[in-house]
Design a protein around this nucleic acid. Structure first.
Length: 887
RNA sequence: AGGCUCGUAGCUCAGGGGGAGAGCACUACCUUGACACGGUAGGGGUCAGCGGUUCAAAUCCGCUCGAGCCUACCA
């Protein structure tokens, strides 16, 4: 790692920053420079560690919103940080075809033009989607570039690329031959609007106030009949049985009988099913509709019941529904109820809190629908994926997601993967003219059973997540043993929102282990979701915020810094405009601090080494703080605490470097004689603080830091590859920190004294520091900084001796002091003084009590007792100083 | 029905067994040679409530109230 040297100035390197900070004037340029110089491709000395991430591929449905910007900013911070730490970093970009989502967007767009996709036909439709996709991909790419993401564009992938499609086919065929993919007729979640099956995860459960109806079915031989309870009366048209619990005495009389289905007149056997029937619930009698309820279907399987489909794929009643045929399912419900009421079969109804499943994409009420679909048998895949997390091969950050993961994985159910859509990976199953099914990676030439050469491919496509789960290795060319695959798989960190833990993360772990034998990443950082006004932003809702607008107004660095500082461990991330403005202000602060510093090193360049130089207390202090900041940033980045990391640089740069050190060295630097050694050192310290700050900040604010770096070093575009400051232990200096911080406290106290007494900031003030202070050595050290103290506090007079009688006494950080205005002098703000004294009294009483408490002295750690004692001394000093002092 | 989060300054949120923090907003003063996208000094909080553990609780435990999220095949 090379030291970030500051070369002497040259003609072609004028160290000048424009007075005004204009992010848009350099952002694009730096991205281009980095890209042209290949900074985003993995590079580095042989043997250096690699660090690999794959982007969670955004859907090609449109553009990115601030939530995407958040996740990608986090990834880019990690990428840049690791790169600067010497890793060979690869961050793979790409996009997801997003089956349902994209098809929906396309359909909507067509509808606006008055086109129905069925008139267009499958091929033409898909052609249009491809055109759309190309546009969306360009938009997304340009957004990621504007944000500054250091993605290796030479490796960009799309889930429908030929090689990724081959990976999908390989995965499907392998699972099929392993018996882990099967085709079958089951009740699945069906969206009548989308016209496709969806997985359990794609069903959003919503609470609803429904009605539980009680309907009487006639039962010959049982006068009371069978009263069933249902929330969906329209499905009764498809009933094929009535079920009771075998051990329920209430319904025992129905045993072996036959009920008659109202309206339809079908005879329904009374079956006994302890699994289906809950004795505690309702009437204890359940209508059984195998075609329209998954539980009823299972019961039907157990009892050999027929399934009658009365609601079709479009949500309308079928011919089986007789007179109700053609009606919308909800209209049919009304009419069935009316008919039952007319026939006096509706025994009663009660309000009933229920959950209704809705389509994640279009919010249409999901219909349980009996159809033939493809499924993945997930349990065998889940077992090793559970073990991987148990063994720590994969870990979640923050770790509280581990439990959620286990919970879901241990109760996992089969996954319906076929979709009745056009946009996506066609299922590689081919049926020959004689009905034999061939599943193969390549289109079959002839049927292995009958030799037929006429095939028809399954018209359905795969769930998008089926291809997404392969992403961490399909992007590297799997199943081919490509060089990239060998070198970059498995990846290191996966960064994504917790909302797709099940959809994507869990499935990637399962697929990764199953297909490659290795977990696809070792750490999963699950971040919160960006909310604006309390509402979740998502692709399907309309409430998206365009990060480009924010970038245009405040600069990409400000947007990134804001997102990083907002990165909390909680489930929501709150982003507000005022915060982005605050980050922009921070960038401006950096800009101006740089202008000042560059102005100081302009004439002859700053010395590149600090070694062997005699340093002042302020020099030692700021370097010590710099080390502390660097350590804190690194520590927090390692722990995915981007907010704390950002806070550490912010605090250092603004409040310590600018508010503190810069003000301390100004008089020295502006002094006439240019040969002063202290001045040289200060320039070197300043340069070092700035260059390290730029480096520390670069992962967060890559553009402005690179821009300043160029002016500072004359090496354009090289900050991205500079060494990341780790914090130099040699700079740690507790003694200097103690003294300078006491100095700063004194300055504050003097200024505060003026305000307190109602004087203007220019009022000449006299300060006396008592050498006989509780902290004697500190008083002596402060004395060595007398000129500085005089300057910073704008003192008219500074003495090191017992305060004069007329002075206001006080104690700060163990220093007894006296304060007074130089001449004349208004009285103290007695109200304020009284309040201060009261507060002091309260605290003193509290501490004294504590120190008289034997239990405290006995059980509390000695360090705590000592600290308490010291504090009490200080407070008592203040108390007596303030009450006896002049004024 | 279970599970997970979270209630801290006006707002958005950190912190997390021993002196209540940040940013923004607010008040007063300051156009001081880097910066008014700035400086200086302030005001503002029974850390949701109740109980417990402890020498010590905003912090740990329990309960209550309130908010959010996730999972779930109870008609």
């Amino acid at each position: 790692m090379s030291e970030n040297r500051i070369p002497a100035i040259s003609e072609e390197n004028p160290r000048k920053l424009p007075k005004t900070f204009e992010p848009s004037s350099f952002e694009e340029r730096w991205y281009r420079v980095w890209e042209e110089e290949g900074r985003f491709r993995p590079s580095g000395p042989a043997g250096s560690p690699r660090y690999v991430m794959v982007i969670p591929p955004p859907n090609v449905t449109g553009k990115l919103h601030i939530g995407h910007a958040y996740g990608r900013t986090i990834e880019d911070i990690l990428a840049r940080w690791m790169r600067m730490r010497g890793s060979r970093v690869l961050w793979v970009p790409g996009t997801d075809h997003a089956g349902i989502a994209t098809q929906m967007v396309m359909e909507r767009s067509l509808a606006k033009q008055g086109i129905d996709k069925r008139d267009l036909g499958r091929e033409k439709f898909i052609e249009r989607v491809w055109a759309w996709k190309r546009e969306a991909k360009d938009t997304i790419q340009s957004q990621l570039r504007k944000l500054g993401c250091s993605l290796d564009w030479s490796r960009e992938r799309f889930t429908l690329d030929p090689d990724l499609s081959r990976a999908v086919r390989r995965a499907f065929v392998q699972l099929y031959h392993e018996g882990l993919i099967y085709r079958g007729r089951y009740v699945v979640n069906w969206c009548p609007r989308c016209g496709t099956a969806v997985s359990d995860l794609e069903v959003v459960h919503k609470d609803e106030e429904g009605t539980l109806y009680r309907i009487r079915y006639d039962v010959p031989g049982v006068p009371a009949g069978a009263v069933v309870a249902t929330t969906r009366p329209e499905t009764m048209l498809g009933d094929t049985a009535v079920a009771i619990h075998p051990e329920d005495p209430r319904t025992a009389k129905l045993r072996g009988k036959t009920a008659v289905l109202p309206i339809v007149g079908r005879e329904l056997p009374v079956i006994e099913d302890p699994i289906l029937v809950d004795r505690e619930f309702g009437t204890g009698i359940v209508k059984v509709t195998p075609a329209h309820d998954a539980n009823d279907f299972a019961s039907g399987q157990r009892h050999g019941l027929p399934a009658v489909i009365v609601i079709g794929p479009d949500g309308r009643m079928t011919a089986e529904a007789g007179e109700f045929a053609g009606l919308d399912r909800f209209e049919a419900r009304k009419q069935v109820l009316a008919r039952l009421t007319a026939e006096n079969r509706l025994v009663g109804s009660d309000p009933y809190k229920m959950t209704v499943g809705t389509c994640q994409r279009c919010e249409t009420v999901i219909e349980p629908y009996l159809s033939t679909q493809w499924f993945v048998k997930v349990e065998p895949l889940a077992a090793p994926a559970i073990t991987a997390v148990e063994d720590g091969v994969v870990r979640f950050a923050p770790s509280n997601w581990t439990k959620t993961y286990f919970e879901w994985m241990r109760n996992i159910r089969d996954w319906c993967i076929s979709r009745q859509l056009w946009w996506g990976h066609r299922i590689p199953a081919f049926t020959c003219a004689n009905g034999h099914v061939t599943v193969s990676e390549t289109d079959p030439k002839s049927c292995e059973v009958c030799g037929s050469e006429a095939f028809e491919q399954d018209p359905d496509v795969l769930d998008t997540w089926f291809s997404s789960q392969l992403w961490p290795f399909s992007v590297f060319g799997w199943p081919e043993e490509t060089e990239d695959f060998r070198e970059f798989y498995p990846t290191d960190t996966l960064v994504t929102g917790y909302d797709i833990l099940f959809f994507w993360v869990a499935r990637m772990i399962m697929a990764g282990i199953h297909f490659t034998g290795r977990a696809p990443f070792s750490v999963v950082h699950l971040h919160g979701l960006v909310r604006v006004g309390g509402e979740k932003m998502s692709k399907t809702r309309g409430n998206v915020i365009d990060p480009l607008e924010a970038i245009a107004e405040f600069g990409a660095d400000a947007v990134r810094f804001t997102l990083a500082s907002a990165a909390a461990s909680g489930p929501t991330v709150s982003v507000e405009r005022s915060r982005i403005a605050g980050s922009r202000n921070f960038a401006t602060k950096l800009w101006n601090a740089a202008r000042f510093t560059l102005g100081q090193i302009e004439d002859k360049g700053a010395p590149d080494s600090l070694e062997g130089r005699e340093k002042s207390l302020p020099d030692r202090w700021i370097l010590s703080r710099l080390t502390a900041a660097a350590r804190e940033v690194n520590r927090n980045l390692a722990g995915f605490r981007f907010d704390e990391a950002a806070q550490a640089v912010y605090g250092f740069l603004w409040h310590e470097l600018c508010d503190g050190y810069l003000e301390m060295v100004k008089p020295l630097l502006s002094a006439r004689d240019g040969q002063d050694a202290g001045k040289e050192t200060a320039r070197a310290v300043l340069a070092r603080c700035l260059s390290d700050s730029l480096a520390l900040l670069h992962p967060f604010m890559p553009f402005v830091t690179e821009e300043i770096w160029e002016k500072m070093t004359g090496r354009p575009g090289s900050l991205i590859a500079a060494a990341y400051p780790q914090g130099d232990d040699a700079f740690r200096d507790e003694a200097a920190e103690r003294v300078v911080e006491a100095l700063r406290a004194l300055v504050t106290r003097v200024r505060n004294f003026r305000t307190e007494r109602g004087f203007p900031p220019t009022e000449p003030v006299r300060l006396a520091v008592d050498p006989d202070s509780p902290e004697r050595s500190l008083a002596a050290e402060i004395a060595t900084l007398a000129p500085l103290l005089r300057h910073l506090a704008r003192l008219a007079d500074l003495t090191f001796g017992a305060p004069a009688p007329e002075m206001t006494r006080d104690v700060t950080t163990g220093l007894s002091i006296g304060l007074s205005v130089a001449q004349g002098g208004a009285g103290a703000d007695s109200g304020k003084l009284a309040r201060t004294l009261a507060a002091l009294d309260g605290e003193i009483a509290e501490l004294s009590a504590k120190l008289q408490n034997a239990a405290f002295l006995d059980k509390a750690p000695p360090a705590v007792v000592e600290k308490t004692r010291k504090r009490l001394v200080e407070l008592e000093g203040r108390r007596s100083a303030l009450s006896t002092g002049g004024a």
